[in-house]
């Protein structure tokens, strides 16, 4: 499972989109929010969470990884 972005905390800076190594997070210019567009391609590297300036991102592992 991909990163979970708390849109209440998100300031719309776009860093998560810019820094994601897998092009998983796309900033939606129209809605002004980051979208986890390709969740299956997440590497769980934590770059988005590390660089989010307001701590809006948590990493949630899904059952396909926790219980395989």
């Amino acid at each position: 499972m991909p990163p979970v972005i708390d849109l209440d905390k998100c300031t719309g800076c776009g860093t998560c989109d810019a820094h994601c190594p897998l092009d998983v997070i796309h900033y939606n210019e129209k809605k002004n929010i980051p979208v986890v567009k390709y969740p299956d391609e997440c590497w769980h590297c934590g770059s988005c969470r590390l660089d989010c300036p307001v701590g809006a991102i948590t990493i949630k592992f899904g059952p396909e990884m926790l219980y395989v």
């Binding site: 810019a18 820094h19 994601c20 190594p21 897998l22 092009d23 590497w43 590297c45 934590g46 770059s47 590390l50 660089d51």
Partner: peptide, 14 residues
């Protein structure tokens, strides 16, 4: 790079 030079590659997250 396909991503950013700040966080791409094998040691992206550290």
């Amino acid at each position: 790079d396909k991503s950013s030079i700040e966080r791409c590659g094998a040691i992206a997250g550290g």
